[in-house]
Design a protein around this nucleic acid. Sequence first.
RNA 1: GGGCCCGUAGCUCAGCGGUCAGAGCAGGUGGCUUAUAUCCACCCGGUCGCUGGUUCGACCCCAGCCGGGCCUACCA
Length: 1040
Amino acid sequence: MARFREVPIDVSFPTLERAVLARWNAEKTFEQSVAQREGQREYVFYDGPPFATGMPHYGHILTSYIKDVVPRYFTMRGFHVPRRWGWDCHGLPVEFEIEKELGFKSRADIVAYGIGRFNEACKASVLRYADEWRRIIGRLGRWVDFDHDYKTMDQSYMESVVWVFSRLNELGLIYEGAKVVPYCTRCQTTLSNFEARMDDATRPRQDPAITVRFRNADLPGESFLAWTTTPWTLPSNVALAVGPEFEYALMEKDGDAVWIGAATVGNYARELEGYVEKKRVLGEDLVGLRYQPLFPYFEGTPNAFRILPGDFVTTDDGSGIVHMAPAYGEDDNALCAAHGIEGPKPVQDDGTFDSTVTDFSSQHVFEANPHITQKLKEEHLLFRRETYDHNYPHCWRCDSPLIYRAIKTWFARVSEWKGRMIAANQKIRWVPEHIRDGRFGHWLDNSRDWAISRNRFWGAPIPVWRCQRAECGAIEVVGGSADVKARSGREVVDWHRPAIDAITWPCACGGTMQRVPDVLDCWFESGAMPYAQSHYPFEHKAEFEASFPGDFIVEYVAQTRGWFYTLVVLAAALFDDRPFKDVVCHGVILAEDGRKMSKRLKNYPDPMELVEQHGSDALRIALLSSAAVRGSDLRFSEGSVRDAVRRFCIPLWNTLHYFTAYANIDGFQPRGDLPSLPLSRLDRYLLSETESLRARVDEAMASYDFAACYDRIEDFIVLLSTWYIRLSKQRLWRAGMDEDKRTAYEVLHASLSSLAKVMAPFVPFLAESLHGALGGASDNSRSVHLEDWPAPRPEWLAEEIVAEMSAIRQVVRLARSIREEHKLKHRHPLRTVLIAGLPSGAIAHNLDLLADELNVKEVRALDEPEKHVERAVKLDYTRLGKKLRGDMKKVAAATAAGQYEVLEGGGLRAAGIELQPEDYSYRFAPRVAGEGVAAEEKLVVVLDLTSDPELIAEGQMRDLNRGLQDLRKKAGLAYADRVEIGVEASDALWAHIVAHEEWLKEQVLATKIARGSAEAPLAVEKIEVGDEQVLIALTRTEDA
RNA sequence: GGGCCCGUAGCUCAGCGGUCAGAGCAGGUGGCUUAUAUCCACCCGGUCGCUGGUUCGACCCCAGCCGGGCCUACCA
């Protein structure tokens, strides 16, 4: 009766995985794994929410795998690791989707449709992919709690966000200002400076660049040349700026004189053909000069139309003179404000000119560019027209080119607490490490005030109410629903617009307090996630404070300016702390061709089809053992997944198959009594490596080096499969169950059991199958994911055996290379091998192993290796380099040339310098080619190549055995099936067969060996035995 | 313009102040296998981007340059 669950050899990993999933679902294994750690140490993981406006792609899958491995690992290590799924619900991405669906062209369409209806549509849509996400993430084997998820649109979440805003306000970190900010004319809202850099929002664009004459108001024959790539800002021009330190040249030809930056004259070689430099002055000498406005629209602007000094002026591009439109440029705004100039704002919210700009009224600014250029040309004010390729920001969702525009916006005064953010960052552990002071550190250094309001609809409200009486304008900021109720007497039923807008209350002045209409930047909401998911500080106050900062987050590198950033901003302001302790930044997954994965190009395989083809664990291995987990980009190919199956899954599976099949034949039942068993050195080697694997994985996980974890596990599987099991076959194949055989089973069982646990976080499905199969015939054994991580077993470590085995494996390689060189088949036995250079005792310890592996009758120590090999001194460079310094070269040259003398009592002298025995060792190289000698490092192997009839006969028997085994397999026989054999052999060969009949019968489980073909054989084949072609046949013996 | 990362075999990537630079894949040859879709050995294949410097010793550290990627900037 089978005790171990039968493991089919022709496994389908995807099928296997589905069965495991079914069991996890049925037994609520995930829930148990979390619940059983209740009360133990917390390991706090924050789930960075995806925008669920589409289906998961490889990037999400990579993130998800890491978000699964780490919590699984720490759970097994004894931590309580709750994992709540998060949904990002608010913001432009969603609004934009809905606008598309409803066929809206502009913001006005939304208002006409009704904010309430629009937001209902947003709400209804955000979770439309939720079921698909849940299905896919579940299929991947990621354990995460979807039932207790958080959504940024939850009332509790929104109330915490409101609290965060009010808290910042109490700290004096919020203000309303009219700064120049990125603005989307289609969405009709401001964006934050970092949204303008999201993903590929900043990308090449071609714009017109024109150089314009501004005529000197007092000397009409002179003009100032200014260059701009935004002709649409020229109607709003109110000043020019020059670099006070730069030189400016007055260039003249035929009575036309133009001022231009001296360093930029070369930029205008063609236009300035024939012009002569008449004068050269410093910029500061031009300051104060007046010029005629280009357009008449704003002629009356006080203090305007003069030349101002600007420290931002460069001479890299353009003409060295910069035109100033304060409402549409940050520098312009600051400089003009400093000189008492208020700029006109003729551009309306939808990007069109208002009626003040009579010539271009109601034209969109980008549409107006050529018309403005044309008009300037007609008035002879256009000096040059060109096109300019530059990187230009676009709206990260609707893709419209942004403009910069002064607009009333609510700001978080980030520049004020930047220092605390920088300090907090120093306490964060980044993987890869360079992000901390590199990409992220520099980003923090450049932090500017954050425009947090959006003149939009679907988001958490700015919790600011303002008295509607213009002459009062009092402002109140609320920090939660209690604040609202205290003022208005009304409950907050929904923090969303328009419900929240409907709540008003009387101002002390008699006016009405009404909410300012803006909503918050959705990045503000995601930055508030640690607090808002717990409804802090309204609920779970103590739990939150005990669990903050979080232990671990992971997202892709671009979040350094997204979520990672907003988390740090808010945590530094609210708690003067880091929001998380450890963060892993993974890279971007590219298609195999090195380009971005593109649905349109179909340059990548569908993730779920791939998972159903090869299995999720294989995909997990491929992704997490790649450089992507170290922050690099990854060219993903299906081949890497196939490779993972071939290198990792199949060898492991076959190991398990072998173990269960033979253990069941033998009726092996583990007793767990290893310490009392006569462990062989091979057994101790495997146990030592088993323990080392655990330690190596722990070490790698301490630095979140997932790739190293997979490498170590794979190394172990190879060792297990190609060394331990292969060498144990003879032990396990023997009939009956002696103690040695049982020991082998116990060792294998212990090692595999440990392996199952160590693998569990990394290949959760395979580990579960492995663990389940080892647990016994009953399918009711506990999940491996409910087990504790293996405890250290220092008693399993056996360093000297590991070193010895590594030397033995080297000897085996050397012996094989000798056979290779001499075309001697491995099956052909040889008489003797001589070995030198092994650790003392190694030969005695491994006599049988060496004899088997090398297929020799006798293994002996080689006493005088010098007879077969040259001996060379191998210096310990690390030791000697430090000691000898400049003499190192002399000594190295002398010893390499064999010029040294061995000193009595150890040590040697070379180039007049004495070396201690620990300063060097010897290595060998074969002296004579063709002698059956191989050497490497200090090892020397000498194989006796001579043969004799007895050895030849044995070789033939092994050939025959091999052929018969092959035939058994081809005939589809079970391992324990008995057979009858027929052999058509020469007389000489037959005589050998007769001599070895018993051995052969035992090997191939034959009841009878006959000369000639059997009647109606089950299988027949012609094979090579020695030099002879032999026909073999077998028939299955009916069971007695 | 500035910053960060990268440049190692045909491909994907390890490595790292120490002797002769590695693995996997791909190609070739041979061998092993009573679990394996395996595996093993050997061959093929490298100016470790280039040039200097530091050092007894540099793929590794430093400087400069070339190439690629990512990020960034008030390219008006």
